[in-house]
Design a protein around this nucleic acid. Structure first.
Lengths: 168, 168
DNA sequence: CCTTAACTTCACAAAATTCTGAAAGAAGCG
DNA sequence: CGCTTCTTTCAGAATTTTGTGAAGTTAAGG
């Protein structure tokens, strides 16, 4: 009868899950993510299957189908989540791809590329021989440096992960 | 007479500077920074001295003293910019600390720490023996991994920078 | 000390964003 | 093919965020 007692094997404590979802989402929001994507993502991350349907998301988070749709579109674009059709159904499942999402998170390549572009323009338009131009050039070098570093870092992570958690 | 001809040594082409400032600020905004801090920061970055007064910032960006104040407070808190008093004056100068600002940018330690805290709670409240709990644990391991990696990366950058640009 | 220049804080108007309900659009299933 | 179930789009209401003017605070300079 008591929902607290059916922990192992049965339905999870919805209260506790929701509490975690909201607190993790809050952290993501603070780091710059939009509210709905953050909440949807946190919910998916804490689901046992690693995936949920639109209806399940709407129910747990108490948001409209429209909100789910918008959040999922954003998450899919940024490769944090993938969408898959349940065969023989018009229901869609949204899934966090195990270890792929945080790779997406660190994969700021597009952002860095644009910064580099802007900085190159800066060097040109301010003059490579000016103090400001030199500052730009150095900053540009920094970004070029971390760009390759991040790739190597993720390589090392994959090795480390395999050792620690097995391949899967 | 022609402002275009007085490039070397004279006043810089205000038009070109402003254009760069706004376009670089736009990139920062897109990456999640607030508008005013982004614009103020871009302006400082493209000034030859690497520093400007409140009045200069207000004039170039066409914003009120209040806006400058708010933006600078934010930038100082996040260590992107430092404030210094001009001796014997009540004017303050805001300065980008050469190579320190992008270190601040990559120094997301506080953010990562909070994520780690939230994830640890997640492992506990969802159960370390559940699929969701295991996913959390792995994500947690990932953040712990990159935390140390980033420190080492910045070490390497300092060495690389010294070689390329001299100590200063 | 009093004046004045400079920065900060605060309340509010304006602007941008977010979320919803409603309607339209796909796609399985009989 | 039409019915039904699910998803997406869209216009607008509600909330949140942003930037300003004005008043308040601090500190230099007479």
């Amino acid at each position: 009868m008591n929902p607290m007692t059916e922990s192992a094997g049965g339905a999870r404590d919805a209260e506790a899950v929701s509490k975690f979802v909201e607190s993790f989402a809050a952290q993501l929001v603070e780091a710059g993510m939009q509210r709905m994507p953050a909440r949807v993502f946190a919910a998916l991350l804490s689901s046992d299957e690693g995936s949920m349907t639109s209806a399940e998301l709407g129910e747990q988070l108490r948001i409209s189908p429209a909100a789910v749709s918008g959040a999922v579109r954003y998450l899919a674009q940024t490769h944090m989540v993938s969408r898959e059709r349940e065969p023989g159904s018009r229901r869609e499942r949204y899934r966090v791809h195990g270890n792929q999402w945080y790779e997406a998170l660190t994969n700021r390549e597009a952002v860095i590329k644009r910064w580099e572009g802007a900085l190159r323009e800066g060097v040109t338009s301010l003059g490579a021989d000016t103090p400001a131009g030199r500052r730009m050039a150095e900053t540009l070098a920094f970004f070029e440096f971390i760009e390759t570093e991040i790739v190597e870092m993720m390589e090392r992570w994959r090795v480390h992960r395999e050792k620690t958690f097995g391949q899967e």
